[in-house]
Design a protein around this nucleic acid. Structure first.
Lengths: 335, 335
DNA sequence: CTGAAAGCGCTTACAG
DNA sequence: CTGAAAGCGCTTACAG
């Protein structure tokens, strides 16, 4: 029944509750200046009519979308999930919702995911991706860049994990186990460069020779496999490998297996990201946790403080990563 | 410069282009009844002013959001990615965009992701998740259920892959290799039940005894590991395992490894989903492809045809899955 | 094509 | 608290 009836509006609710339209609006926005009985009457009418405020009308009349746009690279990248969760948690109390745009998903449709967000009039823009030229000049709205990026966005806040420190910790762990022949496999991008730098610093500090292999910009399981093959080929005495991320570490494990090397007996491996993958029985991978959930929470704070004070100086948040010891590291057989 | 200026509206564009407001509106919606020179003038003004139509105003005035809401379980589930891509491709030509809501993400915030979508006035709802009670009565708007679900939504279209056929194909493949002791590990949910049924049918058809192990509703790597341990414990003569999905298959590989069994030498394993995981060097897993991209395309067609003809009968689409042969199956050592 | 007008469903003061 | 009013930025006929 009532299938053909049009959607209930605020007028219908007011009429059903026997109050004014303004009062309904006040109840909707949780105004304290509404008496309990009237509030109850309005809520009852809302429920009765299955009324839901039109987001379009609310946004247009209120002049605010109450939405934060988030651009990510690709849904398949697991680190976004925890980031989004933290971000949403931190924003929810302020009544802000998030809208997510996958860059690869939109690539065939719009020139830039930014377009949609600007039409939506998002309150702020969170870029968990390498900023495109258009994103560098988004002006008007607050921008928070998440992660270590090659491109700078003028005036934007930045929040990231201290990738350089993370790989330094990983190398120190391997060195403390007695490893001296430690290779690094990596790819391109801002994070990869910092992780490489941390590796180099720590190796230098320990008085050890570097051995870095990279076969492409990508940091996939396949490139990890190929990098490891080359690394083991170039230096068969390698006893440990630090990968730029868990996917590459997974590839390293496959290459070790193919070479007849046991992990961690013959070869120790450390990943990066503490992805769901790394916690599996099959990998049980020692890795570095970037604390993406915490990062999301910090980003939420940056969004809120920026909205409260649009004129404030740009902030930088740098989180300390955590080494997660699991089963892929051991003392080398031949130190 | 122009930092403090308010956003350009359709009035500003009209004025800058020296035309009427109505004409701008026509250009925005690609009306053919606009002369080339005027259209060019309007487009130039739009570019000049960096004008972007307000989505809220467009939706409110036009009475249509041009948005399709998609509810998924969890961003970490890789099969959604291809589904979303196909869906978006199929919807883009009709000018429809998609909005995605992650159920676990929203669980702490709204009672139901449906609320947000109804406020947005989405044109249609795509449920790639087990429908909640609220979703069963969404009424008014078209609903398309994707995947094999335990719950029915009255009047909704359904699109899914033929899971039962998929596991049947998998078992037939194992049988043709000479396996007779084939176990199945699974969990709960609509897909799992159908995959189980396909296993049972094929085993029966081949005159073989079933051996099914399930330790929980979940179909994770961990449950796959534990199911396999139990299965091997209950029947050490098992030569092949069919898992309800790739994650469980990964757990099976870990359990085989822990038990000192080589894959596929001692034990053949087949997964399901053809996830990115299954294609890695480390797994190189034989699996079944559900053709999720195609599924997304079909769902898009269902959305469009339903919007074109709201009164049409509910449709069912059932896609034939594809067995992907990789490296985890071989003839059994002891047939 | 133009131009004036009404309306989409809300929010926001504001006088009572 | 109410009630009438203006306005958010568009779309949609409609007379010219």
């Amino acid at each position: 029944m009532a299938t053909e009836r049009r959607r209930a509006t605020i007028y219908d609710v007011a009429q059903a509750a026997g109050v004014s339209k303004s009062l309904v609006s006040l109840v909707l926005r949780d105004s304290p200046s509404v008496s309990a009985p009237r509030r109850a009457a309005v809520l009852a009418a809302i429920k009765e009519l299955d009324y839901r405020p039109s987001q379009a009308a609310t946004a247009l009349a209120g002049g605010t979308s109450q939405t934060v746009g988030v651009v990510i690279d690709d849904y398949t990248n697991a680190w976004f999930v925890e980031l989004l969760r933290g971000l949403q948690e931190g924003l929810a109390s302020a009544g802000l919702r998030i809208a997510v745009s996958d860059r690869t998903l939109n690539t065939h449709v719009e020139s830039d995911p930014l377009d949609g967000f600007l039409s939506t009039r998002v309150e702020a823009l969170v870029l968990a991706t390498e900023p495109t030229p258009a994103m560098r000049f988004s002006s008007q709205i607050p921008v928070i860049v998440v992660g270590n990026r090659a491109t700078q966005v003028p005036g934007a806040d930045v929040a990231s994990s201290d990738d350089r420190l993370g790989t330094r910790q990983a190398i120190e762990h391997l060195v403390s186990l007695g490893h001296r022949n430690i290779g690094h496999i990596g790819g391109g991008g801002g994070s990869s460069m910092l992780r490489l730098a941390g590796y180099q610093e720590a190796m230098k500090a320990a008085g050890l020779d570097e051995h870095v292999v990279s076969v492409s910009e990508l940091t996939t399981e396949d490139t990890g496999y190929r990098c490891t093959q080359r690394l083991l080929d170039e230096d068969p005495d390698t006893t440990a490998i630090l990968a730029a991320n868990d996917s590459m570490a997974m590839g390293a494990m496959a290459a070790a297996q193919a070479a007849g090397l046991s992990v961690p007996g013959d070869l120790s491996i450390i990943g990066y990201d503490n992805s769901p993958l790394s916690g599996t029985h099959l990998l049980h991978l020692t890795t570095v946790d970037s604390r993406n959930h915490d990062l999301g929470l910090h980003v939420a704070q940056q969004v809120l403080s920026r909205l409260a004070d649009p004129g404030r100086d740009a902030q930088r948040v740098l989180l300390e990563p955590l080494l997660i010891e699991r089963g892929t590291c051991a003392a080398p057989r031949r130190p």
